[in-house]
């Protein structure tokens, strides 16, 4: 009998614990919290705050501008890995509107979104890389900014891939390695 009572008491106590442990009294990311005016537990970063190791002094890298003028060079050498990474980023964030090739015929455009210009336009082929950085960071016309979701390094990778896309659309057979040429010519037929 004693055993039974102890077991009963213990089980009641432990179910009591479970609740407290399942929903612990701290704020979770993105949870609702009426204490704050906007009702969210996740706090926006106060203006002018600099996180550790985020001083972002390098204006070339973080703004795509030097002394207010758009940069014409990449802040770091472009590598094959960077272009591959940029392709991933482009396909995730940009291709829905700009299309996989950058022609401006993405799926959302086919569903009625105002079409963006083709990235292969002469104007955009001549535009400095800093312009692309500025467009992704701050938006352009009706295109929203992507800075909150695409880090500065990823933006540069995407731009490297856009440059590769632009080259690919304006290349001729002479640009292809001699060994590959024959392969391409036969594939055409």
């Amino acid at each position: 009998m004693k055993l039974l009572v102890t077991a009963l008491v213990l089980s009641v106590i432990s179910t009591g614990c479970r609740k407290g442990m399942v929903n612990q009294q701290y704020l979770k990311p993105l949870a609702e919290e009426e204490f704050f005016k906007d009702g969210s537990a996740s706090r926006p970063i106060p203006p002018h705050t600099v996180a550790r190791s985020h001083l972002n002094e390098d204006a070339h890298f973080f703004e795509g501008k030097i002394d207010g003028r758009l940069v014409t060079t990449f802040p770091a050498p472009v590598t094959r890995e960077m272009i591959a990474h940029g392709r991933e980023g482009f396909d995730i964030y940009c291709a829905v509107c700009h299309g996989r090739t950058g022609a401006g015929d993405g799926m959302i455009v086919q569903r009625g979104f105002p079409p963006p210009p083709s990235l292969h336009e002469e104007r955009l082929r001549q535009a400095p890389v800093g312009h692309f950085f500025d467009v992704i960071t701050n938006g352009y016309g009706i295109m929203y900014p992507y800075a909150s979701r695409v880090t500065a390094a990823d933006r540069w990778a995407i731009i490297a891939y856009i440059r590769a896309l632009q080259l690919s659309q304006h290349s001729t057979l002479d640009d292809v390695e001699p060994a590959e040429r024959e392969h391409l010519q036969t594939a055409e037929k």
Partner: peptide
Amino acid sequence: LGIDCRYCHTSVEQSSFAGLPSTETCMTC
């Protein structure tokens, strides 16, 4: 529409939290 998971659940590859899209993300379209 063929939108990638990461367009909305951006932090899934970098953090513990997959994250739900902000309202701004919906508004891009």
